[in-house]
Structures are given as C-alpha cells and as structure tokens.
Design a protein around this nucleic acid. Sequence first.
DNA 1: CTCGTATTGTGAATTTTTTCACAACTCAAA
DNA 2: TTTGAGTTGTGAAAAAATTCACAATACGAG
Lengths: 206, 206
Amino acid sequence: MKRIAENTINRLIVYKKELERLRREDVKNVFSHKLAILSGFPSHLVRRDLMNVGYFGSPAHGYDVVELEKCISDFLCTPESVRVILIGVGNLGRAILDYCQQQNPKISIIAAFDSDKNKVNKIYHGIYTFHIDSIKNFIKENDIKVVIITVPASEAQKIASEIVDSGVRGIVNFTPVRLQLNEDIYIENLDMMLGLEKVVYFVEGG
Amino acid sequence: MKRIAENTINRLIVYKKELERLRREDVKNVFSHKLAILSGFPSHLVRRDLMNVGYFGSPAHGYDVVELEKCISDFLCTPESVRVILIGVGNLGRAILDYCQQQNPKISIIAAFDSDKNKVNKIYHGIYTFHIDSIKNFIKENDIKVVIITVPASEAQKIASEIVDSGVRGIVNFTPVRLQLNEDIYIENLDMMLGLEKVVYFVEGG
DNA sequence: CTCGTATTGTGAATTTTTTCACAACTCAAA
DNA sequence: TTTGAGTTGTGAAAAAATTCACAATACGAG
Ligand SMILES: NC(=O)c1ccc[n+]([C@@H]2O[C@H](COP(=O)([O-])OP(=O)(O)OC[C@H]3O[C@@H](n4cnc5c(N)ncnc54)[C@H](O)[C@@H]3O)[C@@H](O)[C@H]2O)c1
Ligand SMILES: NC(=O)c1ccc[n+]([C@@H]2O[C@H](COP(=O)([O-])OP(=O)(O)OC[C@H]3O[C@@H](n4cnc5c(N)ncnc54)[C@H](O)[C@@H]3O)[C@@H](O)[C@H]2O)c1
C-alpha cells in the first residue's frame, strides 16, 4: 500500500465525520463540491484524496454517502474497536473522558490512571481509575497500543518513557512538553497554546 | 514580507517554546542540531526555518538563545499583549481558562461568556463570566480579534456567525463542527477526536 | 434518440516543501 | 600561524502536495 501523507489522513478523517453526519441526516449522495464546502478543503483535493482511497463515484450522482464512509473507514483501518487508556485524571483528563465516550463508539477509553490516592479507585464518567503503579501490567495484559497523556508537564517525559517500554506505539500528548523517545512511536502533540498562538499570528501578522 | 507556510509557523512556535525553556535553564547558546532534537524536526529544516525569519547564528556558537527567541517572537508579531475571550464555560472551557493563564502571559483571556444563568456573573479561575447576550458589544468595545469556542457542538455555528459579524478575525474551535463562514476568518480546529483517530491510524494501519 | 448540463477521474503542470551537499566561517589548540 | 573539527547558510536537487484543465461519463429533458 502506498504511503499516504499525514495531511491526507487528516482530511480523510474530516470527510468521514461529515459523511457520518450526512448519513444520520439520511442524505444518500454527495458531490465533491458539497463535501468540499463541508470539510473546508477545495473540491479537487477532495477528489484527489478519494482517488487515493480507491473509491469511485458516478458523474451523475457523485458519491454514495454510506459506501464512501465505509470505504474511508476501511482505508483508515479503523478496527471495530480500539482500546485506549488515559493517564492523569485532572481537569483536562476528566473532560476528555466525558467527551470521548460521546464521540466515537469505536474508540473506547477502557481505563484511567492517576497517582493521586484520592482519585485512585474512583469512577469518572464511567471509567475506573487505577493507580499509576499498575499501568505497565495493564498495558501488557490488555495489549494497549494507544495512550492519552494528561498529566502535569513535569511528569510527562517520565510516564512516556515507561509506557513505551511496555509496548505502547502511539501517544496523544496534551502536555506542552515535546516528548523524547528512542523508539519509533507516533506522537500527536495537541498543545492548545500552539493553536492559539497560530491564530494570533495569522490574525495579527500573517 | 514573503508568505510563510502554516507548517513553518507551527515549527517556529515550537522552537520559540523550547528556546524559552533553554533561557529559563540559563543556556546561552544552542546549535541547530540540538534544537532539532528538542523540537522533533530535522536540523536542516530548523536552519531553513531560521533563514526565513532572518536570524543568523555563528558557525562557532550556534544561535544565541535570547536573541533567537526575541527574533522569532518579533517575526511572529507576537504583540506585548493579546486579549482573547472564551465562549462556553463548561468542562473544557474551565480547564482552558486555568491552563492559558499558566502558559503564556502575552495572550490573556480577559472574559468568558455563557448562556447558563448559574454561570453568568461568576468568576472561574479568575476570569469573569458575562451573559452571552452582551458579547457583541463586548467584542466591539474591546476590539477583540480572537475567540475560543467551547460551547456544545449544536451552538457552535450560530455563535461563530454572530461573533464574526462583530469583527472577530480568528477562532480557536474546540467543537467537532466545521464552521461555515463567509468572511475570511482564520479558524484553528482543535478536534481532539481527530488527533486520536490519527494516532490510531498510524499505529494500527499506516 | 440526441443534446445539454453537470460531475467525475486523472495526466500533466505548477507550486511548495524538504532534503542534500558543500563552501564559508569560527575558534581552539598545537 | 596553521590545522582541524564542527557548524552555519544556501543554491540546487528532489520529493511531495496541490491545482489545472479537460476527456469521459451519466442522465434527464425535449
Ligand atoms: N487544562 C487544559 O485545558 C489544558 C490544556 C492543554 C494542556 N494541558 C496540559 O494537560 C496536562 C493536565 O492538565 P490539567 O489542567 O488537567 O492538570 P491537573 O493538575 O488538573 O491534572 C493532572 C492530573 O495528573 C495526575 N498526576 C500527577 N502526576 C501523575 C503521575 N506521575 N502519574 C499519574 N497521574 C499523575 C494528578 O493527580 C492530576 O489528577 C498538563 O500538562 C497541562 O499542561 C491542559
Ligand atoms: N470535553 C472535552 O474534552 C472536549 C474535547 C474536545 C471537544 N469538546 C467540545 O467542546 C465543547 C464543550 O465541551 P464541554 O465538555 O466543555 O461541554 P459542556 O456542556 O460542559 O460545556 C458547554 C458550555 O457552553 C455553555 N453554552 C451552551 N450554549 C451556549 C450558548 N448559546 N452561548 C454560550 N454558552 C453556551 C453551557 O452553558 C456550558 O457551560 C463541545 O462542543 C465538545 O464537543 C470537548
């Protein structure tokens, strides 16, 4: 399979989400132009991307909403169910526990971890919180590949190094720390401040 | 001034943050190679980016940490102080109110807005919450250019359209909705689910 | 059936981004 | 002073992403 650019993946995920919505609204077909408006990318890019996933529409009816959604899902290899854990049940961590459950039934946070005795063995938004010391075993026993990190910045590097040893392959990192890891781990840095600074740049200067 | 790519801006912001940290640790000089490791980008890209901002290091000592940080800041036009507002003081909104204040003293959230009577006129993390009905006036009177949106998905489009009318130029959108706006507004979509899905893709499939 | 309209799919051109590779430079040590 | 090690800055090459432009297609109206 041809290696697909990260930007393309981003866009595909957006298309998928919009298709999902169209399906719920019982829309049957959609043209590249419409998908372009919904997603915010130009229509020829939409078509180019769909070429990559190997879905073909009809010049008369555009794309079949259900089929295309399925096709993109398959392409993205979204398995029926992915189990993820979250580390750091603070302000942000709890908000995410709540949010994720509403959003994507295929990706489920199956456990949370914290070092704070007051939080351990509690349930937040339906998810049980274990003590951080048990995390390595948990990752191995449950074959966890993806982890969300929402601990304080000062703890992030240490935690990240440890979980990578246990076999984690991907990290969603909400801390402002750039994690340094030896192995080839996929890291998605979601630093909100960076997003805010970018907007300020484009508004004030660029 | 030459138009700079969004990716470059992203990287510059990361460099700036790492330089800030080096400065606090009292490091005086840094080589492109070191900055590359800290930021996670290759060193020739670091050098190319710094070429863009017009800063020149010395082959012997690399880059002066303080000067380079200043230079990038100036390039990004980061003004001494930018005033931002946040709409939707829910789980996520409150977490952000807290976080932003710790992070970047130059960007300050000066007010929050909500429609819930129980939240209006309250102070969260030191920031006063006004009723949403007063937002248009507030934006105009305080010349607000950047807004953070953390209202429920169902409210996002309506709110966005309204504030754009009042003169807002940039939006940090935490809702999963792709906002449709006529004017040329800079929108930064920070959909966490998208980040998580991307990690799942690269771990499971790509 | 034929025509007109609207859309797709894609080769090719263009633009942008990244990487390569090395001359030029700085300094320290001999 | 001269050499050597290590780094920068950058032209040029390569790779990648995006846009263009249009032939091919499908369908409905007349
Ligand atoms: N609040 C935000 O909106 C926001 C936004 C972006 C990024 N962040 C970042 O996300 C992280 C969390 O932010 P927050 O506001 O939720 O902080 P928080 O202090 O509310 O939560 C941190 C949680 O991590 C736990 N913790 C601390 N050390 C731990 C360890 N070694 N192992 C396991 N758990 C540990 C704490 O007990 C606490 O529950 C921070 O790095 C912050 O910079 C926060
Ligand atoms: N919780 C998360 O981690 C998370 C993550 C990503 C995205 N999001 C998105 O961010 C948004 C907020 O999430 P949340 O968990 O904080 O939800 P929430 O329900 O806790 O908070 C929403 C807030 O918006 C206020 N509000 C509702 N309608 C309003 C209006 N018309 N004007 C002004 N304020 C209004 C509500 O009173 C409430 O205070 C949602 O769109 C959610 O999808 C949340």
